[in-house]
Each structure stands twice: as structure tokens, then as C-alpha cells.
Design a protein around this nucleic acid. Structure first.
Lengths: 297, 297
DNA sequence: GCTAGCCATGCTTTTTTAGAATGCCACATG
DNA sequence: CATGTGGCATTCTAAAAAAGCATGGCTAGC
């Protein structure tokens, strides 16, 4: 197979119209050039140049060959450049997962900051359940996940970076009697029906809320409608129950929906970033932004 | 610069998922492969593979690099293939020139025969004056020319191959008194006005006709309208004069135009193929077809 | 006919690449 | 838990490829 060196020699000779000037331009001796061109011609099976008294001229086949191999070096250089950018984290796609209790709108400040620092990077955002995030990140199908603590399923291939704690709020129908209050305590919710995004493995926000209720001596009463696909908040707005949500979620407004802060000192929720042990530079950078992020509000 | 060998090694390792099977597939020892990949990675500045217990996996940057360099070898192979076809005369464009007294329609049998023998070849046909053809072919701007003899301007860079002689015919207006005759002799045209394609250097058909008339003791009388751009035959059809033309041109019919054979034994015209000293294989092949061509009729 | 410019060739030296043996590490197995 | 196995890296040596130097041959121009 013709070597790249032979191609480069060939192109230089073709450009300069002679072996002698090409040799000078390439900083090699002229015989070396002659030999490499001769080898290339022998391998191709046809002459590339017409040797004339005053230098050389391309044959028709040589001119065609020149057109075809022009740009191969540029292709290689571009491949190296793109690969380097991806490896260094200068460019690339960050496949980002987030739980439904971490709405995309609440991530936008971090995303904007990230994109400003990495103009060549792109983000691919998906909302999926926390438990799934762990396996997706562990398997390399995603670069980074953002989950609500506690995370029940662990994997040695991923590590967790805790994010700043968030105040918990009560989401309730605007028509609810408690909506008249400016703020509430968790203990007052003992009799209320709780809407909750329930998954098979009860981690995340639902588990955290249950924990807090139990500490106040009651088991949260479950609402009579449970949906996995529609948002908890839609059910609350429809008057089917109340929900305790982290502050991020109050960014999601809806008609008939009201939010009130919980004034309990321990009414906070925690979230974390899931990263592979060997994260991409883009994922590392985004994780650092998230961990440093001050909680909304 | 990354060598093609390194690219091929890299692609094989990426395909087979390990150095050991790739080395077997490439018929090299495994350390050679390890070293070349290591060199490539060092030059690129980022790792291409993740070394794992069971073989290797591409890094993200490695996968991107793979996508970019895939096809470089195919490009080179295609370049060699196309160049070879051009050099061997299997493919390429034949830039063919012809005088106006060798109408394109009369070349069609030869062209068809040529294209049938070279399915990948193409023909680029241009009608230009004989004198110009010599310089075009000599300078390499055309591959082959077809001119009417005699050719006044010669060039050491071109050679001439004579084609079979052609009978001369008289082209005359259908309404002309002589049109009633089945055939004519040149001597009978002494008083007629001759339409002629006159160039500065009077070679080709015009010179040949003049010669023949002089041998019969008269100087052909010139018609009162001369045009370089419109065809002689249009002037004849318009009744402005007569013309002596080779048999090929009788293929060009026109309303009001009649052809009659000249029965003089020496009333023949000669044409020739112009070739560069070093003609392309396609030009050589086409020239052989033309030289062997039996004259039309 | 001589000279200058330019490419090709033969020989030697340097550089690059490959091969063989071996080491190291991780995973699997009994 | 020790041991074996599979797979990549490393070291040293040998071969192959490429480069440099000197020189030869050809052509164009004076």
C-alpha cells in the first residue's frame, strides 16, 4: 500500500514541477525522492510523471491520481484534531439524565454555564428514573445522571457526588384549605392524601418524604390515584392530593397549583450526580458545576 | 504524521476488539501491533483504546477517530484504480477535434466502434480549424485531431496518420443547370463561382480543390459571399455558388442542396489523424479505427 | 561540441520496524 | 486463597526500509 510519505512526496513534486526543488522543500536528498516516487509508480503500475529535460510533468493518470489523493492528509489531520477535542473535553456530546424531581428547567442555569465554557460541546438531555440512571451510566450509555437521594441501587462502576441540599415545599391544590397559610409544618399533613411517584424500588424523593413523616409519628396516606407517566403535580393540581416536593420543582407552575414552604428545619431533600468511575472530561466539568451550584431560591 | 500502516492496524484492532486476534489477522506479531498503536496514540495525544482484562474497547475519541479514518484506504485504492484505468486506456476522456470538412456525423461509425470497445471511455468532440488543431494537440489541450490534407503548419510534437482517400463530389443548388446531370467532370466548372471556407493559411480542402482546378487549366472563381462561421453548404443551398466537397460531407443534407459525383480519377481528397508523439492509449486506439475505416459509400 | 541542469542508480549508513522472549495484571477456577 | 490463563506491555536483537553520498546519463541551450 502506498505510504503517506510517498503521497506527500508525490504531491510536492507535482506542485513544484521537479524532484530537485521538491527535495529541497521536503528537506530530503533528491535520490530519496526519486526512489520513493519510483516505488510508488511501480506499485501503482503506471507512471505518474513525464521526465523531461527541464523537470517533470504529470501524466494524465498522474493528474487524476493527484486529484484523488489531495486532501487525504487533511482528512487525517482533521480526524486527529476532532479526536483530540473530544478527548480533552473541548468538544463532544454530554448525554445527561435527570430524575423527574429534578426538572430540566431547574438545570438550565448550570447548562448555560456549561455551554458557555465549552462552546463546541452539545448536551443530550433525557428524563428517566433514578434506578435506571445508575445502570445507564454504569454501562456507558449515558455520561452523567442526576438523581434524588437516597439511591437504592448502587454499582461499583459509578460514583456519586452530592449536590447542595434543597428546602422542601408543599405542593397543594389552590383550592385546598391549607393553601390559605403562608407556610406549614410537616406534622400538619398527617391526615392528607399524598400523591407520590411510586417506583418499585422506593428510593428518591418518595422515600425521603416517607422518612420525614415517620419521624413525626405518622405514615403518609396515599392518594387513590397513582400514575407513573403523568406528573405528580398534575394530580395535585387536579385536587387528588398533596405532595411534598423540593424547591426545584416549584419552578413548574400549573393552573390550580399552589406551593407553600415547609418550615421544619430538617425538611430538606438531597440530590446527587452519578458519574462513571472514569468520567469524560465534559461529564466531570458538568458535575463540578452542579456540585457547586447554589440551590435555587 | 500517522502512517497508513498504523491506521490499518488501528482499524483491525478496533474491529476485532483485541490486539491478539488483530495481530493474527494482520500476520504480524502482537508486540509490533502494540507498539504501533502506542506510537499512534502518542502522536495523537489521546488514547484510542481502553485496555481491559478481556481485550480492548475504543474510547469515545477513538471511536470518533475510527469513523473519520475509515475509508482512507478505500480512497487510496480507488485513486490507484482510476489512475490505472486512465493509463491503460480502459477509461478516460478522449478530447477529439475535427475540421468542418470532416463532419461529426461522418465520424459516428468510428465513434460507436470505439465506445463499444471502451465502455468506460468518454469522448469530447469539438469542431475547429485544422491549423488550430495542430497546436492544440501539440500542447496537450486535445488528444487527437482529424484534419483535411494538406496540413500547412507542422509541429515536431505531433505526427500524422493518413486516412483512406475520399471521392470528391460537387455540391450545388438543386436549381442549378448542372444539377440535371448524373455526374460531372471538374473541367466543366471553370466558369462557376466556388464557395469555399477560406482561412488565412489556405490548406486543407480549399487548397486541394484549387490544385485540382489549376491542373485543369483554370483558377476557381470565388463566390461573392464568404463566411467563416456559417457552413459552406448553407451558402451553396442559398444559390450563391457551388462547392467541391469530399464524400463525407454529402451526409449533410439541406433543402435545395444537391450532390453529384465528380468522375475525374484524381478527384479525391485526403485526410489525416493528428496525434501527439506520445499519444494516450485512447487516442491510439481511436486513430487505428480511423485509419482502418473504409471511406463512406 | 561543451556545459549546466536534472533525474536515475549503486553503495553505505542510519533509522525504522518486526520478532522472540518475558513480564505484568486481571479475572476465573478449583 | 492460591493458581492458572488470557491478554497487553516491555526489552533486546535482527531484519528491513529509507536516507545520504557519489556518480552516471541524458537533454537543452550556448
Amino acid at each position: 500500500m502506498a505510504s503517506l510519505k510517498q503521497i506527500r512526496y508525490f504531491l510536492t513534486v507535482a506542485d513544484l514541477g521537479g524532484f530537485t526543488p521538491a527535495a529541497a522543500s521536503l528537506f530530503v536528498a533528491q535520490p530519496a525522492l526519486s526512489r520513493q516516487i519510483a516505488l510508488l509508480e511501480a506499485e501503482l503500475g503506471f507512471p505518474l510523471f513525464l521526465r523531461e529535460a527541464r523537470g517533470v510533468r504529470l501524466t494524465a493518470a498522474g493528474a487524476l491520481y493527484r486529484d484523488r489523493v489531495l486532501g487525504i492528509e487533511q482528512m487525517l489531520a482533521a480526524a486527529a484534531e476532532e479526536g483530540g477535542q473530544l478527548a480533552s473535553g473541548e468538544a463532544g456530546v454530554l448525554r445527561l439524565l435527570h430524575s423527574s424531581s429534578i426538572p430540566a428547567v431547574s438545570l438550565m442555569p448550570a447548562i448555560k454555564q456549561f455551554l458557555a465554557a465549552s462552546p463546541k460541546a452539545r448536551i443530550d438531555l433525557d428524563r428517566i428514573a433514578s434506578e435506571t440512571q445508575v445502570s445507564e451510566v454504569a454501562s456507558g450509555k449515558a455520561d452523567i445522571g442526576i438523581v434524588r437521594l437516597p439511591v437504592l441501587r448502587r454499582d461499583p462502576a459509578v460514583r456519586l457526588l452530592e449536590m447542595p441540599a434543597e428546602q422542601l415545599w408543599l405542593a397543594l391544590p389552590a383550592s385546598h384549605p391549607l393553601a390559605g397559610r403562608a407556610s406549614l409544618g410537616l406534622a400538619e399533613l398527617a391526615g392528607e392524601a399524598f400523591v407520590s411517584a411510586v417506583h418499585r424500588e422506593r428510593g428518591g424523593l418518595a422515600r425521603r418524604v416517607t422518612e420525614l413523616c415517620l419521624q413525626r409519628g405518622f405514615v403518609p396516606k396515599m392518594a387513590r390515584v397513582i400514575s407513573r407517566k403523568t406528573s405528580m403535580l398534575d394530580l395535585v393540581a387536579a385536587g387528588l392530593g398533596i405532595a411534598v416536593v423540593p424547591e426545584r420543582m416549584t419552578l413548574l407552575g400549573s393552573a390550580g397549583l399552589a406551593y407553600r414552604p415547609l418550615h421544619d428545619a430538617d425538611a430538606v431533600a438531597h440530590s446527587a450526580v452519578i458519574l462513571p468511575v472514569q468520567a469524560t472530561p465534559l461529564a466531570e466539568r458538568f458535575a463540578r458545576i452542579l456540585a457547586a451550584d447554589s440551590p435555587p431560591g
